[in-house]
């Protein structure tokens, strides 16, 4: 199948915004930070229509930045993001209606001084999806779709609970009738019993509306539940990509394996406390990433090759790819 959303060799650098004074100071040899951070580094991904791609990684690995690049909120430094062959951000436009995002914190993503119905209607009116006169019915339709009472459209965000606000945020994104929906940690700030409600809503909507979706989360069990395929990121690079059950079942990258091993699991059939694996050390600073493979200082399989040479992304099976010199060794370990 042809890819619907394709991300080609996208990188994003964040450099310090130096004032003239600082630039001169740096030239004169004073300690001014002039290095830039490669938040996303040479990422190539494609998502089929109707597919949900999970994006996992620890904080600072660039998963949110990648989400923003796809949504056109940030322009990539190099590379391009296209939907159906057309760039997400066309030259001269400031916004795209094709990609919408649901953010983590529904307390911050809704304007506290706007009625929630107006928040949901604002985008569709501006982009001609509805008119001012018809916007009430239009909003009511989306409110019902996400399980909210349409009469609540005249209320303000503070009158809603976290879960309800997240539903409003989802309605706001969907009311733009996007081709692609980015969910950036949509359940991370919600209570456990509310999380399940939102995940169910998400599953129902993506299925019914045939949405193409990028689901960003640090919670592996949530990603495993909602995604078809998953991409694991480490320090701005994608280290492993493949169908979710295969990647989590038999990880081909040592990082994926370690990440999955360190997630506390609910163990119901053991009376003893379970031992879980931990990864040594911490994520290195992206300002001065290690040489070669970024993961080698923490990797149990690392050899000299890993510190010298950055591993290329190679296919494991037709559907899976991994960036590791020793993936065969890891695969053997995972299958054992």
């Amino acid at each position: 199948m042809s890819p619907f959303l394709s991300i080609d060799d996208v990188s994003r650098l964040f450099g310090p915004n130096l004032t003239t004074g600082e630039k001169i100071a740096a030239k004169l040899g004073s300690k001014v930070e002039t290095r830039s951070v490669r938040a996303v580094s040479d990422v190539t991904l494609s998502v089929r229509k109707g597919e949900t791609l999970g994006l996992v990684g620890e904080s600072g690995c660039g998963k949110s930045t990648l989400g923003r690049l796809i949504a056109g909120i940030l322009p990539p430094t190099t590379g391009s993001v296209t939907i159906d062959g057309k760039p997400v951000m066309e030259k001269g436009t400031k916004v795209t209606t094709r990609v919408q995002t649901v953010f983590q914190d529904p307390f911050a993503s809704l304007d506290p001084r706007m009625k929630v119905g107006d928040t949901v209607a604002e985008g569709p009116i501006a982009h001609g999806l509805t008119t001012k006169g018809q916007s009430r019915d239009y909003v009511a339709g989306w409110f019902e779709r996400v399980g909210l009472d349409p009469d609540w459209a005249v209320r303000y965000p503070h009158q809603f609970s976290g879960g309800q606000r997240q539903r409003i945020a989802i309605a706001r994104a969907l009311a733009m009738q996007p081709d692609v929906l980015i969910c950036d940690e949509p359940v991370a700030s919600l209570d456990v019993s509310i999380q399940a409600q939102i995940i169910n809503l998400f599953l129902e909507l993506t299925h019914d509306l045939e949405l193409t979706c990028v689901f960003i989360s640090h919670d592996l069990s949530v990603v495993q539940h909602v995604s078809d395929r998953v991409a694991v990121m480490y320090l701005g690079r994608i280290v492993e990509l493949g169908p979710v059950n295969e990647v989590f079942g038999t990880p081909a990258h040592p990082y994926t394996s370690a990440l999955f091993g360190s997630v506390p699991k609910l163990v119901l059939d053991a009376d003893e406390l379970v031992h879980f694996e931990t990864i040594d050390g911490e994520v290195p600073s992206p300002l001065s990433p290690p040489s070669g493979c970024y993961y080698h200082p923490r990797c149990p399989l690392a050899t000299e090759l890993c510190s010298g040479q950055q591993p290329a992304t190679q296919g494991v099976t037709e559907l899976r790819a991994v960036a590791c010199h020793h993936f065969e060794q890891q695969l053997a370990k995972s299958t054992a």
């Binding site: 019993s193 399940a196 539940h225 699991k265 609910l266």
Partner: peptide, 23 residues
């Protein structure tokens, strides 16, 4: 209900058991 609502308790892609309402 809390235990049943965890994603690990359901097959991937299937609806989770949810506790209705809010606290």
């Amino acid at each position: 209900g809390l235990i049943a609502s965890l994603p690990a308790m359901a097959a991937p892609g299937t609806p989770l058991t949810q506790i209705p309402g809010t606290t």
